[in-house]
Design a protein around this nucleic acid. Structure first.
Length: 707
RNA sequence: GCCAAUGUAGCUCAGUGGUAGAGCAACGGUUUCGUAAACCGUCGGUCGCCGGUUCAAUCCCGGCCAUUGGCUCCA
């Protein structure tokens, strides 16, 4: 159940996209379950019933309806695989055929605890010695005074607040879809359970439609289309997982987006900067990314240290020392007897090294030398000099702010950059272009005074809306993320420890949102480490949901860098900083656009905007066609040609499959009349038109960024 | 990172304990075609990587890597 806003500003505050109708929603929320959700919730119970018939010792945790179906989390020794689905579905059918009523039973907390301990909850009967452990946990989460209920279908009794359909027979058509894993209550410290997914509908027709829709979604998948259209490639073997290569066609889109951003930002008073991709450790110790708050999302450092004019990889040495083996050392000592001397320095070693014959040197790996040599030297090495790949652009921008003295007259200062960042996302999180390790952010940092904050923050929000209009994005939610005070300090600290500033800035953002009447939802505990933020969550047409744009407040880091401006009263003050990325990253944004348009990009974005093809290869005809190609290319239109000996149907087939936006088909008749025949991708033949008119229309459409 | 599934030619996919096939693409030739596939031929693979079992492994077993579906995390 996802709620979104259809680009309207009617209801100022709004409800949550309840992806999980989970155990701990309020009873009120649960009562709002739609008919279909009830049906799926009931299907989850029936599935549990079936699983218990096959594996009586299964322990169940939570089994809610979700956006496209339902799941039930189960703890079971047997690993359920899709091969088991048939058997489970067969048991489910029996339960549905039996048409048991769903009976609601009200019990006392004492009774519920006793039943759980007897293993009777989420079970077909009492299971001595096998208590319903997860149900006990769920019981604890139910507030005092709230009614505790069971639902019973046939022999199966479950702790459940409902609601359900009347009878098992009301579950029309269902199918198990996948098995995944999930932590109990979503917490990775809890045991890992098997999550069995299924879906259910009122009838077979709707179920079939759903699977058809999934097929359609597969066709639109950005990974598939990106591959077919030659937009990007991910070369895990040579480049690395999560590090996409933009092929020429994809780069065309990248550059159109950058052009759009640059024009928009220029008009909004931004200035552009450029920064390197790496920085020294001090940068991130100062910003707070290191040592804790962002460390696990960063690539490990490159460690450099100058010694006798050579770069030495100190970290590699350290690792090698730990693993060094005696044999290696002995072999090395045969070649370099002085290694046995404790005061043998690296400089001396180097001299000796270069005196050895090449055949010897060639077999000595650098790391082997480091291993043997540094064993005694390690303690003498100076502090390593570490460089990190940047995970964010802000620290570099802060240093640009610091590069010159600033006056209140300079503010707001808006520094923009399409900056490339590198984040070490966990391996299981990588996903096509949507979740990658190298990302190009449509980034900018706005340094302003508290008085300027609301106007600047709003201007950023307005910029989102402007972009969304261009791309026809009408399903989105603004998510206002705040901090969790319990995570300012301690082992699982997630936010900078500035409780007062958190409160002030969160109030400020909330007020700005309310004043501007932008609909939003508030989500606790999801702020950036340096301040509250607004993310814009969108849904691609195939129902994939993710965060595109972001607008974040930073009250903490400018102060850590000692950034100040001279105010009217001649005092030095710390600016506020707004981090914003309305187009998110190229990777995710283009991934989204591919699915949004199903690869059928509007003319201005299309990788290949125009293809000119001829009927035949006669010279005059080809020359006429070439002149058109040249004219378009002279106007920066991405125009290709097909003058091959292929038949026209074949050429058209090729162009349609390549999703070329505009196809210009030229034969003798067109040439004689000074015409071209226009065919639009997916729209068929529009017939012959005067050449000049067609060219002008193409240029105009691109200029206006027509949808 | 965790759980599960998957990995065969550029792409989509067959297949087998005895060192592999199809269609499309690519390349060469023939064809000169008015809006979604003209015809013929050729090339193309360390069957993800490493190890084990076996006379013999792409197939069986183990480890690793990657992808996918989720979990956790996030632009």
């Amino acid at each position: 159940m996802s709620l979104w806003f259809e680009n309207q500003k009617e209801n100022p505050i709004l409800c949550v996209s309840a992806v999980n109708m989970d155990e701990r929603k309020t009873l009120d929320d649960r009562a709002k379950m739609t008919e279909l959700e009830r049906l799926r919730h009931s299907a989850a119970h029936v599935m549990a019933t079936a699983i218990l018939r096959l594996w009586p010792d299964a322990q169940f945790a939570a089994g809610p309806p979700v956006e496209n179906g339902f799941y039930y989390d189960v703890d079971l020794k047997h690993r359920i695989s899709p091969e088991d689905f048939m058997a489970i579905e067969a048991e489910m059918k029996k339960e549905i055929k039996a048409n048991h009523p769903f009976e609601k039973i009200v019990v006392t907390r004492e009774q519920a605890i006793a039943d759980a301990q007897a293993g009777r909850l989420g079970a077909l009967g009492a299971r001595p010695g096998n208590p319903s452990v997860f149900k006990l946990g769920n019981l604890e989460a139910i507030p005092e005074g709230e009614q505790i209920t069971y639902f019973k279908n046939g022999d199966f009794v479950d702790l459940c607040a409902g609601p359900h359909v009347m009878r098992t027979g009301n579950i029309g058509a269902f199918k198990l879809t996948s098995v995944a894993s999930a932590y109990y209550k979503g917490d990775e410290r809890n045991p890992q359970l098997q999550r069995i997914y299924g879906t259910a509908f009122k009838n077979k027709t709707q179920l079939d439609e759903y699977f058809k829709m999934l097929e359609e979604a597969k066709r639109r998948d950005h990974r598939k289309i990106g591959q077919e259209m030659g937009l990007f490639a991910i070369d895990t073997e040579y480049v690395g997982p999560g590090l996409p290569l933009w092929l020429p066609k994809g780069t065309a889109i990248v550059e159109e987006l950058e052009k759009l951003a640059k024009e928009t930002e220029f008009a909004a008073g931004y200035v552009r900067v450029k920064t390197p991709h790496i920085a020294r450790e001090k940068m991130y110790l100062t910003s707070g990314h290191l040592p804790v708050l962002y460390a696990e999302s960063m690539y490990p450092p490159m460690t450099l240290r100058a010694e006798s004019g050579k770069k030495v990889d100190v970290e590699a040495q350290a690792r090698s020392i730990e693993q060094s083996d005696q044999l290696l050392r002995e072999n090395m000592e045969k070649i370099f007897p002085r290694l046995k001397e404790s005061n043998y320095s690296l400089q001396e070693f180097e001299k000796d090294f270069w005196q050895k014959p090449e055949q010897v040197r060639i077999h000595l790996e650098k790391s082997a030398i480091a291993t043997v040599f540094s064993k005694s030297k390690w303690a003498q090495l100076p502090e390593p000099d570490r460089y990190y790949l940047k995970a964010m652009n802000c620290p570099h921008h802060h240093r640009i702010f610091a590069a010159e003295p600033r006056s209140y007259r300079d503010l707001p200062l808006r520094l923009a950059e399409y900056g490339t960042c590198y984040r070490y996302e966990q391996s299981g999180e990588l996903f096509g272009l949507m979740r990658v390790r190298s990302l190009n952010m449509n980034d900018a940092h706005i340094y302003c005074t508290p008085e300027q904050f609301a106007a600047e923050f709003n201007a950023v929000n307005e910029m989102y809306l402007k972009y969304f209009k261009i791309f026809g994005i009408d399903k989105y939610v603004m998510r206002f993320s705040t901090h969790d005070p319990s995570r300012l300090t301690g082992d699982n600290a997630k936010f900078v420890n500035e409780p007062e500033l958190w409160k002030q800035t969160e109030d400020m953002v909330r007020q700005t949102l309310i004043d501007s009447k932008i609909p939003y939802v508030e989500v606790p505990n999801e702020a950036a480490f340096y301040g509250p933020k607004i993310d814009v969550q969108v849904w691609s047409v195939i129902g994939r949901e993710f965060t595109l744009a972001t607008n974040q407040v930073d009250f903490a880091v400018p102060a850590k860098f000692g950034l100040t401006y001279r105010d009217k009263d001649n005092s030095n003050k710390t600016p506020l900083c707004i981090h914003r990325a309305p187009l998110g990253t190229h990777e995710r944004f283009i991934g989204f656009l591919i699915e949004h348009y199903a690869g059928n990009f509007p003319l201005w974005l299309a990788p290949e905007q125009v293809r000119v093809m001829t009927l035949g290869e006669e010279e005059p005809l080809v020359n006429y066609a070439k002149a058109i190609v040249n004219e378009l290319r002279a106007n920066f239109v991405r125009c290709e040609s097909d003058f091959s000996s292929n038949k026209i149907n074949g050429k058209i087939q090729d162009a349609e499959q390549a999703k070329v936006h505009t196809m210009l088909v030229i034969g003798g008749r067109d040439m004689e009349a000074g015409n071209v025949s226009v065919r639009l991708h997916g729209k068929g033949n529009l017939g012959a038109k005067p050449k000049a008119e067609v060219v002008a229309d193409i240029l105009q459409s691109i200029k206006e960024r027509r949808a």
